[in-house]
Amino acid sequence: MATAALLAGDIFRNRLVRFFGIAALFGGTVATVVAIILRWLATGHPPLSNLHESFVFIGFATGLAALVVELTFRTRLVGAASALVAVLALGYASVLDSSIRPLMPALKSNWLIIHVTSYFLGYGALAVATVASALQLAWSFVPGADPSSLKRIDLLAFRLVLLAFPLLTLGLTTGAVWASFAWGRYWGWDPKETWSLVTWLVYALYLHLRAMRGWRGRRMAVVALVGFVFVLFTFLGVNFFVGGLHSYR
């Protein structure tokens, strides 16, 4: 609903329709929060322990990031497309096994909350950054595209990565601290650890190429898209293709 209304608001430049879109996005995000809290109360542990719960949280994080972007940047299409990504995440969550199982011993820790929450909030921001970068890239090939709006969307993607990076850092490092308490080693080159480090390095590269080498526009958008491929592989690919200590399904 939010996607349709934001899209229509963008296309027809109708403020009322756009307002309805933002309200729908807000409503959807709040409803997801309520669902997460209810599940927490029902299971007695933070609902961040399997794939279903993860996708619900990522849907929430993406919705939140889309809302923030829509309210602060007012960049056309980005909010609408991001709301669609959030809906897809929630839709995928709904077909996954949602049965409640007790928490396995390694997950029984308060580090679970900070480690997983910071990662998923970061992933939400990066999902929206990826949407922005993809739109920017596509737009840049449209003849007569307005350079100032291209610049604006470039800046938006950069700011989202900048916002996500401390969250990735917090997720990565609290993971190491937690592993040190749970498994007796802060780093073990477990596939999930390795891929999350690689993802972190790719976004570090993104920030350095921008700040130190002055990259902008298409090149930067491509790096952002590559970065999100790494996010997806770290989050999902490792579970399905590689395995290791982190394969929670």
Binding site: W189, A204, L205, L209, R213, V238, V242
Partner: peptide, 20 residues
């Protein structure tokens, strides 16, 4: 910075290779 980028890319490639 150029050297730094090259080293980072090599570390990334080697780390990925290591998981497979």
């Amino acid at each position: 910075v150029r050297l730094g980028v090259v080293i980072l890319v090599l570390i990334i490639a080697a780390s990925i290779a290591g998981t497979g």
